[in-house]
């Protein structure tokens, strides 16, 4: 089953997202800030990263930017969840390479569907690459 890193500084939200995704059978790891997230991303491989934007040490946009600029981690799917809903931030997140953006309050079902879709898109594109080779 796919492994997901959830980065969120709000304890309640972190626990909730972990439980919701865990219920669907994913392997969930969590980080409470950008620094902890970078450590975990350094040592482990993930299929999807679900990140908040406003966090201590390093914000979500820095996480997105670092993942996209690293050759070995470029394939990881990124979903941003944030209460920030202004146009500039959303477009900036997509410009940096986020795959999806959910504005809080979120719908649990929607998050699950978007993760499933993201994973299936990644799978089909990787199959296509293998076939071409």
């Amino acid at each position: 089953m796919a492994s997901i890193l959830v980065i969120e500084d709000d304890d309640i939200m972190l626990k909730a997202v972990r439980n919701i995704l865990g219920k669907d059978g994913y392997t969930i790891l969590t980080a409470k800030d950008g620094k902890e997230a970078f450590d975990k991303l350094e040592n482990e491989t993930y299929d999807v990263v679900v990140t908040d934007l406003m966090m201590p040490y390093a914000n979500g946009l820095e996480v997105v930017s670092r993942l996209r600029s690293d050759e070995t981690k470029r394939h990881i799917g990124i979903i941003v969840i944030s209460s920030v809903g202004n146009e500039e931030t959303i477009t900036e997140a997509f410009r940096l390479g986020a795959d999806d953006y959910l504005k809080k309050p979120i719908m649990a079902g929607e998050l699950l569907i978007r993760i499933r879709k993201l994973l299936s898109n990644k799978n089909s594109s990787s199959q296509l690459v293998t076939r071409k080779k």
């Binding site: 809080k104 309050p105 979120i106 719908m107 649990a108």
Partner: peptide, 15 residues
């Protein structure tokens, strides 16, 4: 207080 914190984060069926 905890329920309010959850409601700020979730809408839809969970909300």
């Amino acid at each position: 207080d905890t329920l309010i914190s959850y409601r700020k984060n979730f809408r839809g069926e969970v909300g």
